[in-house]
C-alpha cells in the first residue's frame, strides 16, 4: 500500500515538470513583448531595453526556463504586469472564491447525479429511465454560459430572489455566502450532473449483470436491497474515481461562470489577464491550475487504492 502510494506520487513528478515546461513554452509563444507592454505606449527604446534586461528577457531561452523552474521551486510565480502585486499573491487572494464555487457545485453534483443514475438503472427501460436520462442528456448539451444568462433573467431580474452578480465572503455570514453562490454553482453543476447520471447508470447496469447480483436475487434478497447494497457498492468505486475528475472539470468550468456572475475568482483573473496580455499572470494561473489538477488526480488514485485493493500500478 505505502509502496503504491509512493509510486503514484513519483509518477506525478514528471507530469508536473512537463506541465511547467508546457506552460513556459506556451507563454513564450504569446504575441506581444512584456517589456514593450510594461513600458507603455511610445516609450523610447532604451527604456524598453532596460526593462527587458531587468525582466531577464534578454537571456537565452533555456536559461530563462531554468530560472523560471528555480523560482517555481520557491513558489515564486513572478510579478503581474498590471496588478502591482506578485502573481502568487493574486492567485491566493482569489482562490477561496473559485474553491467555494467549485465546492458548492460539487456538493450539488454528487448526490443528484448518483441518485439520477441509480433511479434510471433501477427502473431500466421504463418511462422513468427515459425521463431521467433525457434530463441528463439536456444537461450535457446545453451551454452553461447561455443557461447562466437565462437563470439571471428568471431568478434575479424577474423574480428578484437571488443576486445576479458578486461574491460575499463566508465570514460575512454563511447564508449570504451561499446565496451569492447558489445560482452560479447550480448552472455550473448542471453539465456534471448530467455526465455523472449517465455514467452512474451505465456503471450500475454493468454491475447488475454480474453473478453476485444474480446470486443475491436468487437467494431472495429484496430488489431494493440488491440494488442498494450489492450493486451500488460495487458501482461506487468507479463513480468515486470520476468525482475527482468532476471536481477538476468544475474548477475549469468556473472560468466561464465567474465571468458571467462577476465572481472575483481565479477564472476571472485568468480571462482578464488574457485580455490585458498580462503574461506572468496567465502563466502563473495556468500553472497553478495544472498543478492542482495533477494533485487531485493523485489524491483520487490513492483513494482508489484504499477503497479497492485490487488496483495495482505498473
Amino acid at each position: 500500500m505505502i509502496k503504491l502510494i509512493l509510486t503514484r506520487l513519483a509518477q506525478a513528478v514528471p507530469v508536473m515538470l512537463i506541465v511547467a515546461i508546457l506552460t513556459f513554452v506556451l507563454m513564450k509563444l504569446l504575441p506581444g513583448d512584456p517589456a514593450v507592454l510594461l513600458a507603455g505606449e511610445g516609450a523610447d527604446l532604451d527604456k524598453v531595453d532596460a526593462l527587458r534586461r531587468e525582466l531577464g528577457l534578454d537571456r537565452p531561452l533555456l536559461i530563462q526556463l531554468g530560472s523560471w523552474l528555480a523560482d517555481l521551486a520557491r513558489f515564486d510565480l513572478g510579478r503581474s504586469l498590471f496588478l502591482n502585486q506578485p502573481v502568487a499573491e493574486a492567485i491566493v487572494e482569489r482562490l477561496p472564491v473559485t474553491l467555494s464555487l467549485a465546492m458548492v457545485a460539487f456538493v450539488m453534483t454528487i448526490p443528484i447525479g448518483i441518485i439520477m443514475g441509480m433511479v434510471a438503472a433501477y427502473w431500466r427501460d421504463s418511462w422513468v429511465d427515459t425521463a431521467v436520462m433525457s434530463l441528463a442528456l439536456v444537461g450535457v448539451s446545453v451551454p452553461n454560459f447561455w443557461l447562466a444568462i437565462l437563470a439571471i433573467i428568471l431568478f434575479s431580474v424577474t423574480l428578484g430572489w437571488l443576486p445576479s452578480a458578486g461574491y460575499v465572503p463566508i465570514d460575512e455570514g454563511l447564508w449570504l455566502w451561499l446565496r451569492s453562490l447558489i445560482m452560479p454553482a447550480a448552472v455550473l453543476a448542471l453539465f456534471q450532473i448530467g455526465y455523472l447520471a449517465r455514467m452512474t447508470r451505465s456503471e450500475m447496469l454493468e454491475v447488475m449483470d454480474q453473478d453476485y447480483v444474480r446470486t443475491a436475487r436468487a437467494k431472495g434478497v429484496s430488489e431494493l436491497r440488491t440494488v442498494a447494497k450489492h450493486a451500488f457498492r460495487n458501482a461506487l468505486v468507479s463513480v468515486l474515481t470520476v468525482s475527482g475528475y468532476i471536481f477538476s472539470l468544475l474548477v475549469g468550468g468556473s472560468v466561464v461562470i465567474e465571468q458571467i456572475f462577476a465572481l472575483p475568482g481565479i477564472g476571472r483573473l485568468l480571462v482578464q489577464a488574457i485580455m490585458a496580455r498580462d503574461i506572468p499572470v496567465v502563466q502563473g494561473t495556468m500553472l497553478f491550475l495544472g498543478f492542482m489538477f495533477v494533485a487531485i488526480n493523485v489524491l483520487v488514485d490513492i483513494f482508489y487504492t484504499v477503497v479497492d485493493p485490487r488496483v495495482r500500478y505498473d
Binding site: V19, L249, G252, G253, V255, G290, F293, N297
Partner: peptide, 11 residues
C-alpha cells in the same frame, strides 16, 4: 498526454 490532460479541455 497526462500533462495535457491535467487541464480540463476548456481551460
Amino acid at each position: 498526454m497526462d500533462a495535457l490532460m491535467a487541464f480540463p479541455a476548456i481551460l
